[in-house]
Amino acid sequence: MWKEIILLVKKEAVLEWRQKYAINGILLYVVSTIFVAYLSMGAGKGNLGVPVWNALYWIIILFSSVNAVAKSFVQEHQGRQLYYYMIASPEAIILSKTIYNTLLTLVLALLGYLVFGLVFGNPVADQPLFLLNLLLGAIGFSASLTMVSAIASKASNNGTLMAILSFPVLIPILLMAIQVSKNAIDGLDREINLDKILTLLAINAIVAVSSYILFPYLWRS
């Protein structure tokens, strides 16, 4: 099982590497969105309040990860999907896609953090906690978005469907992540965040487990 998953993750990475336009496109998407936000806020360094900084950052990450993950089931055509269907178990496929998308979302979030800090200034006081929170948020985002993109790929009218199906599901994760990252920016005592981080972990676990259980049904159709 694990061997299969590692192999499939490698396959995703190689595939991404061969058609570089997709990954480059999404990276450019993050950078240009941040730049648009920067210009429209008309704010220089440090002029942005912490709540606004935080909310803007997470919204940009939300939209770019929706866009990044949306293609995970549509990029390969039917014939090849049938081939995977025959050689790999559905559990391995959903896990490998989730792991790969976590890495992708994490890269996006880190790049976004870098550029965001560059143009808006970086107010984060507790860096390790902020990064840990980014990791947890990326896991949650990719777990639910991978499942939703599998659902949306079965239907036509993909783009809209992807957004409306995923936003309500993502809200709990987003809210917890925003809270923790607000505390990390303010550099509050880590004790306060403990139960929030645990809740975030619990939501991630619920989402991951339910997609692990439900995906085989989707894959079979």
Binding site: K154, P168, S210, L218
Partner: peptide, 14 residues
């Protein structure tokens, strides 16, 4: 099938 999958998934997140 697909809407059953989504409704269970959404309920689990709700």
């Amino acid at each position: 099938k697909i809407s059953a999958v989504y409704s269970i998934f959404a309920f689990a997140a709700f």
